[in-house]
């Protein structure tokens, strides 16, 4: 562990499930800053007029989606705390539904994330899911960065279906792009499927793992 410029960066892997899945990305930042302060972690603060701790997340999770593989970086001023100690302290300070799994020194940039694996529980039978996936193209509407802008994209080439289980309630495991360039979040997929089926299909989604562009687990 090395302190450079007065800090070193720790990457925490944590899960976000149950009630915590309704914490928006923006709110998570504030929540985690307070968790770390409560945990008595010696945080490094930015300089300047409005000092705040440095905290950043990999690949924002959409509201309502659960996850077993969130990653958060923060900076410490002191290297005496062991990683196990950090995990233990953070867990004591976490609200219901957030749980630290492991911590390690952060090496790669968060922007190296390329893909994410999701498990979706769908309230429709396998036949519909099959037919949906066999369409020549799957078009979804995405909001663009410009205000009010909408773009239609075909996500079919991006879908990597790993597994389909169950007959009436279907469980689908899929790897979706999740990088700065392209992101397909499970909500998009669901909207497209509901449109296809002509009725609202309910689903719960769980993010299982993050991968880099080469398909290796992102650490």
């Amino acid at each position: 562990m090395s302190i450079v410029n007065g800090f070193y960066t720790v990457r925490l892997v944590f899960s976000k499930t149950g009630r915590a899945r309704y914490i928006s990305h923006l709110d998570l930042n504030r929540t985690m800053a307070r968790v770390l302060r409560r945990a008595g972690i010696p945080l490094w603060y930015t300089e300047g007029f409005n000092k705040h701790p440095y905290i950043t997340f990999a690949a924002p999770l959409s509201l309502g989606c659960e996850s077993l593989c969130e990653r958060m970086d923060f900076r410490l001023t002191d290297e005496t705390l062991s990683m196990d100690e950090i995990v233990a302290r953070v867990n004591k300070a976490m609200p219901e539904g957030l749980q630290a799994i492991s911590a390690a020194e952060a090496v790669r940039k968060m922007s190296a994330v390329g893909f994410a694996k999701y498990r979706l529980q769908l309230s429709c039978d396998r036949g519909i899911v099959g037919a949906f996936l066999e369409q020549p193209s799957i078009e979804v509407e995405k909001k663009t960065k410009k205000k009010g802008g909408v773009l239609t994209v075909d996500i079919k080439p991006h879908l990597q279906i790993e597994e389909i289980k169950g007959e009436t309630a279907t469980e689908l495991t899929a790897i979706l792009p999740c990088s700065n360039e392209t992101t397909v979040n499970p909500t998009l997929l669901l909207t497209a499927r509901s449109a296809f089926a002509g009725r609202e299909i309910k689903a719960s989604s769980l993010r299982l793992e993050l991968y880099d562009i080469d398909g290796e687990i992102f650490a």
Binding site: G18, R19, A20, Y22, R34, A93, P95
Partner: peptide
């Protein structure tokens, strides 16, 4: 803003 209705906040 669903977290207004979910409960489960820190220290609840």
């Amino acid at each position: 803003k669903p977290s207004r209705y979910t409960g489960g906040e820190l220290n609840s």
